[in-house]
Structure formats: structure tokens, C-alpha cells
């Protein structure tokens, strides 16, 4: 029982991280029908910026570890948000304005993904090693803050790391849901996702809304990057690829283009992966999780919360 509860908690934390990354894929897909393959590197970039900031600056302060983390999250989010907007300006917008067929920006997305990996690697080779562990907060005989555990039922425990991921992840999901559903800009994002030319007839500057979408999706990716480093310890220039792929899968599982779908898809995938690793085989966890995914998609091809029919009226 203890093991089961702890596996669920760990799977849920992993799933929340996937959810927050998956939102970036699904929002961009929603407005542009583009799979932004560079999002995995945008995620990795924010994580590395956050970790480097912690190691280089913040751990030298006397701030509480949580405050340091919040600061790293904000800076990581800003870095990823700006990077995502830049990628859109440089690699996608020129193609869109020239009316390129849909496959073309997809190729430039893959190109951007590889380009960003190598740029970060280049910077790393010039300025030192990014592959450093997330700082531990041991002072004297105090234990590491994020490793502290609290007892739950049946002897199971929950660590500060997992709690932090729960809280930050939940704030991200709730904040985005509020923004998209109850603010003027959020409404405009939904309008642009449904019909760009009519949106412009309503006075919406479609390109500005696309920029906002990349900024938000990118910032969420940056937050996820720092949380991922907190959970797994290290990030390197190639760390974005696999979690990015899994988050994209989560977005498809939930129904690509659907914001609640991305949230649900991420959590489902994280739980499946963790349960498979714990109870079946940790080396085959991905095969098992992805096998189940294929099965789910066979029965719900448009995803768990995806729209079944096209909305043409």
C-alpha cells in the first residue's frame, strides 16, 4: 500500500510536469495547427537557465530555498517565453505570411529544434558544464529542504519536491484555465483558434494573439523545465527531446488543441509511466506506457477530450 501510494504521487508529479509542457504544444496547435517541435528545446532552455541561475547566483544568497526556486521559475519562464516568441518570429511567421503549405513550417520546427540543441551545446562548451545537479540545500546538520518528507497514510511519505511540483503545477493549470476562459485576451486566443479571418473582422490583431500564445506556451515550458530539473536532478542540451516527445504525446492523448485535454493527457501519461516502471519493468516503462496510449487512441482516435466532429457549420 505504501509503495502504491508513493508510486501514484510520483506519477502524478511527473504527469503534472508533462501537462505543463503539453499546454505549450496544444495552444500553438490550437491557433496555428502547427506542431511546434522546438517546444522541447524551449522547455530545456528555461530549465537550464533556471538551474544555472540557482547554482551561479541564488544559492549564494541566504534566501529560503523555496524563494530561490520561485525566482528561478520566474526567470526560467521569462527566458523560455522570449525564446518561443523569437522562434515564431524567425522560423514560422515569415512562412505563414508567404502562405507556405502546412508541411513547411513543420520542417522548420524540426530544424529549429536541432538548431537550439546545438546552440545550447555550443554555449555550454564555451562557458562550462550545464549538466550539473540541481542544488541541494544542506546547511550544517539540516537536511536538504527539498528532500524532507512528510508522513501520509499507511506509512507512505511525500517529499517537499513532490509537494512543490503539485503546488506549482496546479497554479499553472488553474492560472492558464482562468486566463483563457475569463480574460479578454484569452477569449481572443480562443476566437483566433476557431477562425482567423473573422477574428480580424472583429478587430483582433491576429499576429499579436499568436505572439501572446507563443509567449504563454513558452513560459509554461520554462516553468516545467525548472520543475523537471528539481525532480530529476540534471538537464543537458539534449534533455528536452524525450520529455518533449512525451508531452506532445500527452497533448495528442488528451485531444490536440484542447487545453483541459493536455492537462488530463499529461497526468494519465505520467501515472501510466510511473506505474509501469514500478510494477512491471523500469527499462520497458516507455514501451508499456506508449503501448497503452496506442490502445486508448484506437478507441478514442480524437483523444480523451478531443472533438469528435469538425466544427464546420
Amino acid at each position: 500500500m505504501q509503495l502504491f501510494i508513493e508510486t501514484l504521487l510520483s506519477g502524478l508529479a511527473l504527469g503534472l510536469v508533462y501537462s505543463v509542457i503539453a499546454l505549450g504544444y496544444t495552444m500553438v496547435y490550437g491557433v496555428l495547427e502547427l506542431i511546434n517541435f522546438a517546444h522541447s528545446e524551449i522547455f530545456m532552455f528555461g530549465g537550464i537557465v533556471g538551474v544555472e541561475l540557482l547554482l551561479g547566483v541564488l544559492t549564494k544568497t541566504t534566501w529560503h530555498p523555496l524563494l530561490q526556486l520561485v525566482f528561478a521559475l520566474i526567470v526560467g519562464a521569462a527566458a523560455s517565453g522570449v525564446l518561443a516568441v523569437t522562434v515564431e518570429r524567425v522560423a514560422y511567421r515569415p512562412l505563414r505570411l508567404r502562405g507556405a503549405p502546412r508541411l513547411v513550417p513543420l520542417i522548420s520546427a524540426i530544424g529549429m529544434s536541432l538548431f537550439l540543441q546545438d546552440i545550447v551545446r555550443l554555449v555550454e562548451s564555451l562557458f562550462g558544464n550545464f549538466n550539473r545537479p540541481f542544488p541541494s540545500y544542506i546547511k550544517g546538520d539540516e537536511p536538504d529542504f527539498f528532500a524532507i518528507t512528510h508522513p501520509l497514510v499507511s506509512g507512505a511519505t511525500i517529499s517537499n519536491t513532490t509537494l512543490t511540483i503539485f503546488v506549482v503545477g496546479a497554479i499553472m493549470l488553474a492560472g492558464l484555465t482562468y486566463f483563457v476562459n475569463y480574460t479578454k485576451t484569452g477569449r481572443a486566443i480562443r476566437a483566433v483558434a476557431q477562425d482567423q479571418s473573422t477574428s480580424s473582422l472583429m478587430g483582433i490583431n491576429v499576429n499579436n494573439i499568436i505572439t501572446v500564445t507563443f509567449l504563454l506556451g513558452g513560459a509554461l515550458g520554462g516553468v516545467a523545465g525548472v520543475l523537471y530539473a528539481l525532480k530529476f536532478g540534471t538537464l543537458n542540451p539534449y534533455s528536452g527531446f524525450l520529455p518533449g516527445l512525451k508531452a506532445f504525446t500527452a497533448a495528442v492523448l488528451g485531444g490536440i488543441g484542447s487545453i483541459p485535454g493536455a492537462m488530463l493527457g499529461g497526468v494519465v501519461l505520467g501515472l501510466l509511466e510511473q506505474l509501469a516502471a514500478q510494477y512491471i519493468s523500469s527499462s520497458y516503462k516507455d514501451i508499456i506506457a506508449f503501448g497503452l496510449l496506442i490502445l486508448i487512441l484506437i478507441f478514442r482516435p480524437s483523444g480523451l477530450l478531443g472533438r469528435k466532429v469538425s466544427e464546420k457549420v
Binding site: R187, R190, A191, Q194, D195, S197, T198, L201, E311, V313
Partner: peptide, 12 residues
């Protein structure tokens, strides 16, 4: 401008 086909946002 009220466009051809009305173009109501179906999911708003």
C-alpha cells in the same frame, strides 16, 4: 462586416 456564412465562433 458580417461575412458570408455568418462565421459565428462555434465554440464560444
Amino acid at each position: 462586416h458580417v461575412p458570408e456564412g455568418r462565421r459565428i465562433f462555434p465554440r464560444l
